[in-house]
């Protein structure tokens, strides 16, 4: 394996996934170097979440290969899958906190249940992580229903980083938040990732968020990556689909394709 290839943390090659006749992913190719942050942008229903779930092993792709540290993760047995999952941390769109558990138990969940850590030790780590995302330690004894959306997102982030993962996934990290709280979450993501030195894959359609947290940006459209490059080149991509999306224009190739598809249907 060459040095350049060794430096690739996550690689997707020709990943395809269909649900019945609906071809959601039609051959996704992506790679993320170690320690870099890739943000995948794209409209609703373009396959962002399905791609993320394929990488996480929550959905089995129909075709293609997903390599983590050069090792295939598609079709591996449950033990190997478990070993791979230990490298991951994930912040869900709605935070996905467990309602019946206290905040500290949510943050420490993977440490206690997944790794068998002692509860007291896990609690200490959980409180440290809760403070690292800007919340008071006393929040640890509350339940998720007692927190605002922004605070839940912070707890979700604390849970994602609790086990010091090598790769962190962010699914629409700023959706449903006001612009100020969204920026706070973006800053926290950047800081936490920098501290951990982790590789990250985020999906979003919030361009402010993408610009803030990305080293590289990829645009997914109709189940394929149509553009991939450094965030600095996003405004000069030369790709009409990217231009329409990042400027939020009502007219452009995406709208025209959509009209044609409706007419054909």
């Amino acid at each position: 394996m060459s040095e350049a290839e060794q430096n690739i943390k996550l690689r997707l090659c020709g990943v395809k996934k269909s649900f019945g006749s609906n071809k959601v992913l039609q051959g996704v190719d992506l790679e993320i170097p170690k320690g870099k942050s890739l943000v995948v942008i794209g409209g609703s229903g373009t396959g962002k979440s399905v791609m993320l779930k394929c990488v996480l092993g929550l959905i089995q792709p129909d075709e293609g290969s997903i390599l983590i540290d050069g090792q295939e993760s598609v079709g591996v047995d449950s033990k190997e899958r478990d070993r791979i999952m230990r490298k991951f941390g994930m912040l869900f769109q709605g935070a996905a906190l467990f309602d019946s558990l206290k905040i500290w138990e949510n943050v420490a969940f993977g440490l206690i249940q997944g790794r068998g850590m002692d509860r007291e030790e896990a609690r200490k780590i959980a409180i440290e992580k809760i403070q690292a995302v800007g919340l008071r330690a006393s929040v640890g004894d509350l339940f998720p229903a007692e927190l605002s959306g922004g605070m839940q997102k912070r707890v979700g982030l604390a849970r994602a980083i609790a086990a010091n993962p090598e790769i962190i996934f962010f699914d629409e990290p700023t959706t449903g938040l006001d612009p100020i709280m969204a920026d706070v979450i973006n800053d926290l993501i950047v800081d936490c990732v920098k501290d951990l030195g982790a590789t990250t894959l985020s999906i979003t359609h919030d361009m402010a968020s993408a610009r803030k947290i990305a080293d590289n940006v990829a645009m997914i459209y109709q189940g394929r990556i149509v553009w991939h490059g450094p965030v600095e080149e996003l405004d000069h991509s030369g790709n009409d689909y990217v231009d329409q999306f990042i400027h939020g224009r009502a007219d452009g190739p995406i709208t025209e394709d959509s009209k044609l598809m409706h007419e054909a249907a």
Partner: peptide, 15 residues
Amino acid sequence: MRVTEQIDALSTLSV
């Protein structure tokens, strides 16, 4: 739990 992705969260936490 399924609708709010809590079941997916369990899997990502190695449970």
